[in-house]
Amino acid sequence: MSANIKRHRTGLGGIAFAVIRPVMSLIDIPLRALQRATGQGGMASFFILPNMAVFTIFVLIPFAINFVYSMTGGIEIFLNQRDFVGAEHYRDIFTCGSYLDPASCRRDGFWTAAQNTTLFVILQVTLLIIVSLITALILNRQIIGRSFWRAMFFFPVLLSPVVVGLIWRWILQRDGLLNFVLLEAFGAEQFNWLTDRTAAFAATIGVSIWAHMGFYTLILLAGLQAIPKDLYEAAEMDGTSKSRVFRRITLPLLMPNLIVVLVLALIKAVQVFDEVYVLTGGGPGTSTMYLVQYIYEKGFASELRNPGLAAAASIIMGAVLVVLTLMQMAASRRNEKKGER
């Protein structure tokens, strides 16, 4: 302790210490009085108050307003100019001949977007986990330039989604880099990567994986590195084949990380919007129109604006996200319990 004080009293640290100390002493007096009055529990509440205030202003209140909006009709912005319509938007959304056939639904755009999003989530999350896992397994080995490759795979995570969308649009558009390379290398004809329905859908999945896999790879890599080396050596002594080591040791021990990756990736995939909006604008047609874009366009962008419907759609999507979040919490709790055992 005395060594620390000595260090603070020399050089720049000493000056800072001399300035901070009287200020801290001044704060100390009211804080002590507050603690006497409220007890330690009260102090904890006092300290989280600023955070709660921000959370309330920017999350809870908008959420409540959004819910009220979903019960109103018209194109007006101000609530006092809007008519109360009750659950009409929800009824509208859920009025369907068959949920699997968007054309049979009163709000077919919502169900098209929901169907696209579901397919996107299933394919993107599955491929994302597989690719991230393979990358993490490779990066966990003693390969040349390991640190470089780790940085390379993480780099796209640092990019803004709009930048990601733009980069890939330049690559994939008709006169883009990919067609240029294919033409130069193989003399291939130009292909409409972003205007062919299947190719555009695949492109949104591929770009999304490219943009996010670095983050999930990092989580899985951390999990792989946390598996004790001794276990692999014990398995080697036991004559375990590589595939069995992966199935019986690596995968089960990586499961906590895989669950985290799965749930985070699911939530992120449901929310997909910005990079896809820049890349394809939801097209061709509605083939890459996902839920958030539907909500955005219904609320703000389309000519037939319907903020109430957009609010109702976002509440439904919010409910899906709450379910996914609860899944994550349950999975984390189960892992914690496992860890305690």
């Binding site: 004790p228 001794d230 276990l231 050596e233 014990a234 080697e236 002594m237 036991d238 004559g239 375990t240």
Partner: peptide, 15 residues
């Protein structure tokens, strides 16, 4: 290979 030497090992960490 280790597995074919007919030896068994007890590790410090138990493994």
């Amino acid at each position: 290979p280790a597995a074919d030497r007919g030896l068994a090992m007890v590790f410090q960490s138990y493994a």
